[in-house]
């Protein structure tokens, strides 16, 4: 009986059961994951090394050897200023670099005006502008003179004396050095240069020196001949007047 029941009457268990796939989800507020899935999520949490606040400070100093450079801005106005500055350098034969101590505009303006009257131009340029202007030119050396804003006088070398005279009124403007006729010279040399007379006079002096040497030579060469001539003349004179010589002889004899 039991055999019949088992073999024939029992309905076969289906191998596959269709099942709807877990219903609808809430897209906005998803269900919390169950325990096993939460485990997976926790295990697979991303890890990007130990947190920075737990590290010793020395490891955070990545940039210790790197210099932080400011981002260079290409300012067109600066380029114009630099070009202007270079033009000044190129056109003026005398460039004087000044160190500026604290000075008010009230004191500076008369100096500026006096310099301008004498065809010299007092200009203020910053370090960056000057370095931009002189880059790649023969004036590159003067960058060392600049630490910040500094004043430069542009003019012609014949006015050096006047410049020193004007600057005497403003002791805050200290001359550091200058360029005269493409030559970088110190302050002392500049002072010396300013005391020299103008080029024409110096040239004439040189001419006279050269001439004096020549004339001296001529004189020295002529001296002996002239002496001889004069001696001979004297001799002729003595011979022409024998009486005088006789008298002299008798006088000498009587004395002896």
């Amino acid at each position: 009986m039991s055999f019949i029941k088992k073999g024939l009457l029992q309905s076969p268990v289906p191998l596959m059961v269709a099942k709807r796939f877990r219903g609808k989800i809430n897209v906005q507020k998803p269900r919390k994951p169950h325990f096993e899935k939460q485990l997976l999520i926790d295990i697979s949490k991303p890890y990007y090394g130990p947190p920075k606040n737990s590290l010793p400070e020395i490891t955070l100093c990545e940039n210790i050897n790197k210099k932080s450079y400011k981002r260079e801005i290409d300012n067109p106005f600066e380029r114009i200023l630099a070009k202007e500055c270079l033009d000044w350098f190129n056109t003026s034969k005398m460039v004087v670099f000044l160190h500026v101590n604290s000075i008010s505009m009230e004191d500076k303006t008369p100096v500026f005006a006096a310099l301008k009257k004498n065809d010299m131009h007092l200009r203020t340029y910053g370090k960056k502008i000057v370095s931009m202007a002189t880059k790649g030119t023969r004036y590159e050396v003067i960058n060392q003179l600049f630490t910040s804003h500094q004043n430069i006088i542009f003019g012609q070398p014949e006015n050096a004396g006047k410049m020193f005279k004007i600057l005497r009124k403003a002791p805050q403007l200290v001359v550091m050095g200058g360029i005269v006729e493409d030559r970088l010279i110190s302050k002392n040399d500049l002072v010396e240069y300013s005391k020299l007379p103008s080029l024409d006079i110096v040239r004439s002096q040189l001419c006279s020196v050269l001439q004096s040497a020549g004339s001296c030579l001529v004189g020295q060469l002529n001296q002996n001949q002239q002496m001889l001539v004069s001696h001979l003349e004297k001799h002729i004179e003595i011979q022409n007047n024998p009486t005088n010589s006789d008298n002299l002889d008798t006088n000498a004899k009587s004395e002896s």
């Binding site: 096993e36 697979s44 991303p46 890890y47 990007y48």
Partner: peptide
């Protein structure tokens, strides 16, 4: 830069833990 090599992708692709 994820230092955890057991990402969810790796776990699921390899059926780790019978997931």
């Amino acid at each position: 830069n994820n230092l955890n090599k057991y990402t969810l992708k790796y776990i699921i692709q390899n059926n780790m833990g019978g997931c």
